[in-house]
Design a protein around this nucleic acid. Sequence first.
DNA 1: TTACAGAGGGTACTGCGTACCATAGGCTCG
DNA 2: CGAGCCTATGGTACGCAGTACCCTCTGTAA
Lengths: 262, 262
Amino acid sequence: MTEVQRRRKAATGPAAGPTAAKPPMREVLAEAAFELFLERGFEQTTVDDIVARAGVGRRSFFRYFPSKEDAVFPDHERCLADMTEFLETHGVGDAVDPVDAVCDAARLVTRMYAANPEFSVQRYRLTREVPGLRTYELSVVRRYERTLAGYLRGRYSAAQASEGVVAEGALRAEVIAAAVVAAHNNGLRTWLRSGGQDDADAAVDHALALVRNVWGSGAERARSAPRAEVAVSEDDVIVMVAPKGAPLWRVVQRIESALGED
Amino acid sequence: MTEVQRRRKAATGPAAGPTAAKPPMREVLAEAAFELFLERGFEQTTVDDIVARAGVGRRSFFRYFPSKEDAVFPDHERCLADMTEFLETHGVGDAVDPVDAVCDAARLVTRMYAANPEFSVQRYRLTREVPGLRTYELSVVRRYERTLAGYLRGRYSAAQASEGVVAEGALRAEVIAAAVVAAHNNGLRTWLRSGGQDDADAAVDHALALVRNVWGSGAERARSAPRAEVAVSEDDVIVMVAPKGAPLWRVVQRIESALGED
DNA sequence: TTACAGAGGGTACTGCGTACCATAGGCTCG
DNA sequence: CGAGCCTATGGTACGCAGTACCCTCTGTAA
């Protein structure tokens, strides 16, 4: 008798005391499914195999998971709801930078993965070699991206009525959301490839820093003014001192003169 | 008799003259499938319906399309190959900016869509309301993104051996690829929603400009160098350009002279 | 002519996902 | 206390995508 069956028997059988809470069917199924996926592979495991190990009827599986793939990602739905709620509560007000907010929201996903390192690592390996799971994961990631983009769209086209501005805001929102998701996933994969040993948050933070530096609060204002595109070599460090109110041409002039000296 | 059947009969029947080239089975199938998808919807159309209209055997469908979804995107495989080839031929050399190259590569997709505006618009509407097609499209888009990211990765970690640099290059590559794809798709969707009337290239170019301004040639190098943000006075912003190896006294001298002028 | 290769056709099977119906345990309300 | 009821679960049957295997036809080369 497998571990899953034993636990289910113990909980539902006559010996189940009042303190032994019956493990929810959903978790029993997800656990049985994941065991089998690791043992024989995803495609080699049928839904009948899963329900047989879980000791329940086949019909019950599809009551809790819309598809076989969903059993591999049982907690994304919850995380997606958390993200939406997070942005609704912690993402309001002009004091909070929109890019910071979506980066923080993305960290909710990191936290979910980091909560079960060994499970996440095994699932990562499984997902990498099963095309069907890769495709499914894409659709999940896309939903996170859409959530972030929706929030950003609201922030970037809030007080402005012009439709052109709204379209620009939507573009900006989608690009930043895609960049945040890509950076987050890069950091997360780095952590997953390390076997879940390192600090997941640190890896993700580092990856997100690239996006924040480019799109975040400080960087943005510096770039929202028309930039003089000066070819600076990678070995250069730019430092300039100027009063905030100085005319832009003077700033450019000074940079150019500094470059000219070298 | 439908148009598709008539054309196939005319080509394969005894009346087919030597000049009437037999239309390739793949196109006949794709056309029949798309007709039916528009008439009854994607899910309401079975593969048997498609092969019945095309007048061929069911087996032949799966010889030309791995899945029912593939019949909706018959030319992406070709476009993907074109993109890979484009990057291999036009993306080499230090003179070509990597970001410019991937933007140009993305325009190959625009061109493919713009080649058949009415087909693209109909497919867009179909894809929007069929979840299965949306998921499939995601996997297609992902392959473009991977192609672009792979190219950028090569460019950003080419001559450098350090693995840290390689990891940073990979991160940068993935973020930029995601941003380019997001911007491109935003521009493309704008065009598709206009019914294919406007200029697709113009819409995509405009969207890509946001990415190029941020990640493109000039802008990039200025930001990749570590920025020194020194608080001189509360109203000052310091920006300076100096060679990395420059003696410190010269840096200080330049800052002082800059401050002295105001 | 035979040998062969490639394009198409046909049949049967697996397995996911759904629709419909049946059953059992706990609940309230009369 | 029992009748209704609601929710959770089990069971059966079906549609259909995708695959495996084998057959037929046609053109071509030896």
